[in-house]
Amino acid sequence: MKSWLVPTAFAIAIGALILIGSILPIPLLRSISMQLLQWGMILAGIAVLVGIGNLFAVHFSRVRRRQAGALDSLTLLVALLATLFIGVLGGPSHPWMQVAVEAIIVPVEASLMALLAVTLLYAAMRLLRRRADWMSILFLAIVVLWLLSSVSLPFLGEIPILSDWVRPWLLFSPVAGGLRGLLLGVALGALVTGLRVLFALDRPYGEKT
């Protein structure tokens, strides 16, 4: 007996049950569906804990072996344990947790986002040097046009034509159309993926297809 048969059978059965329970208003199916969804949430929460435990084990091993970057690992472990300790005991509303968020988490991540802004600016400036084709020029022109339509000049405010005509046209015509197509594609892809899993064409449960 093949090893992939049992997990695939479970996957097909649960998927079909959830699907039928979502379509047909059958109380039994709904209760089963509800129970399965709860199990799923529990498993996802435990998976987060497992992930945290794996992260802790890896860095703890690195600190114990005194490998390269052991100091960073030690810092991570200290911050992890401290946050965990504060979060478990005081919760998110604990003042120390708020200090951690306000003084550490938000500024650090905001700084990284600021670096992203600088990097994007640098890339835009050197785009035509790396790739001077019409697509790059068009892309760069759209970016500049979008920024100009969004910017407010000192003492002048928004640029009249750009902010009144160009920006709304860009937002609701080409951008909305493109994103709708993208969302439709994503939806179709999710549907096909679900069907393939239900028909056991894809078995992402421990064995390669």
Binding site: M125, L128, A132, V144, V151, L153
Partner: peptide, 26 residues
Amino acid sequence: WNAYHIALSLVVLLILLGGIVSLVAR
């Protein structure tokens, strides 16, 4: 607001300048 728009204006200017320079260099 002010800093945002001043910085955004500078970014647009830098992109335009950088694009032109890059195109000429190319």
